[in-house]
Design a protein around this nucleic acid. Structure first.
Lengths: 228, 228
DNA sequence: AAAATAAAATGACAAAAATCACATACCTTC
DNA sequence: GAAGGTATGTGATTTTTGTCATTTTATTTT
């Protein structure tokens, strides 16, 4: 198991640069869980006790309002780290997480990782990189939400998803949307109907092809024209 | 100068916990600049070479679109760190910065700080805390933008500003807005007129008092009712 | 302090997006 | 593969927000 763990850790952007013995140290404090679709890993408000990383599968990170509306921050996939904001903070998880595709997750108790970081500047440095990347992405999203209209944000979101999960084919970039239109809308911060209309438009103009949950980006340039 | 520097560093949330000799190390690689209102410290796209912290004054962090619209991420004040995303990243600054109130800024070259972090897990840890806080705040903002309407976001923003800069008086919390309505709108992600209308509404209902740039929050609870 | 200038508030209207209503497509599961 | 249920697409309508025009209020200059 240990050796395998290291292989997983190596796939995590930001951990790639660590030396083998550092990876070894991390793997020693990690435990693993196989979680099936529909499982909630933690709810917003639960006390934040661990940091997670995904070996396989997909997990949605979201927040809900009192009146039941949902915002999906991100759909994380293989190699991604999440719940990192609770490190050194002793705060409740600021968002909830649900497995949307059977997943193997690594779990590291905050206490253990904090101890490791305190003793090991190399590891601390890689954690900083993880944070830095996340912060950059989050600020990017703030800007998009503040300045872009719904079509721009829809285009932006499917471009992002295609970058993360898309497969290059002769037709273009093929993307299996493993979320509903409603959930896609909840990622974009708009209404389900608005996403439908945007996607119809993109299809009509030939930017994408769409068959249920299978999307193909046929003309990326045309899609990019929608961005601000 | 050195002793004084340490006093400044101690005011930075996240650096407070550092030992004196760690602060000493940071102060040794810091330089200082007095910048007057209107000065641009760096533009979005410039190569990111340094991290900054504010001893005094105010700096606005913003992005602009090709068609000239602006989004203000934050107005940072005394004790705040900014441009931290460029650490270990060798990326251009993702936003521009302009001094909006005469400021004394500390500058640490990325190379120097990176070296220090690599050798010193304690300092790395404090940097992680800075990132963690920023990430949390950024994600909070994403949620507000995605789920809140313009009035909710306006209330949220003035509550945030009052928390950072407000002074408690017998009348309520007094806040000197050192930005224009347009800039306030650019922070909220809406139009200048919409902010005017929201503030008028808040005034009419007795939540706030407003005389030019001087605002007093008279009824915080009532204002909070606008949040989601 | 008055005049000139700039910023902000307000009303009227236009545009964008949300909501509602319903038709259509698509999964299940029997 | 038919029946039922759920998800999606689309038109009509309402609501929200943005834009433009104008008045009012601040701020600066003289």
């Amino acid at each position: 198991m240990q050796g395998k763990t290291i292989e997983i850790l190596k796939k995590i952007p930001g951990f790639q640069d660590l030396k083998s013995d550092d990876l070894e140290k991390i793997s020693k404090i990690s435990t693993y869980k196989n979680l099936s679709k529909g499982t909630t890993i933690f709810f917003e408000g639960d006390l934040g006790e661990a940091v997670y990383f995904l070996k396989s599968g997909k997990v949605k990170i979201y927040k809900t309002t009192l009146d039941g509306r949902e915002h999906i921050f991100n759909i994380v996939g293989s190699g991604d780290v999440f719940a990192e904001v609770t490190l050194f903070n002793n705060i409740p998880y600021p968002a909830s997480t649900e497995v949307i595709e059977d997943a193997e997750v690594g779990v590291i108790k905050n206490r253990d990782l904090e101890k490791l970081i305190k003793e090991n500047a190399e590891i601390a440095l890689e954690i900083i990189k993880v944070f830095s990347k996340k912060l950059f992405e989050s600020q990017q999203k703030v800007k998009e939400l503040a300045l872009g209209d719904t079509y721009a944000r829809t285009a932006q979101t499917i471009l992002k998803l295609s970058k993360e999960n898309g497969i290059k084919t002769s037709e273009g970039i093929e993307l299996k949307l493993d979320i509903s239109r409603q959930e896609l809308a909840n990622m974009i911060g708009t209404a389900r109907e608005t996403v439908s209309r945007a996607l119809s438009q993109f299809k009509k103009e030939g930017s994408i092809d769409l068959k249920g949950k299978k999307m193909t980006i046929k003309n990326m340039e045309k899609l990019r024209d929608w961005l601000d």
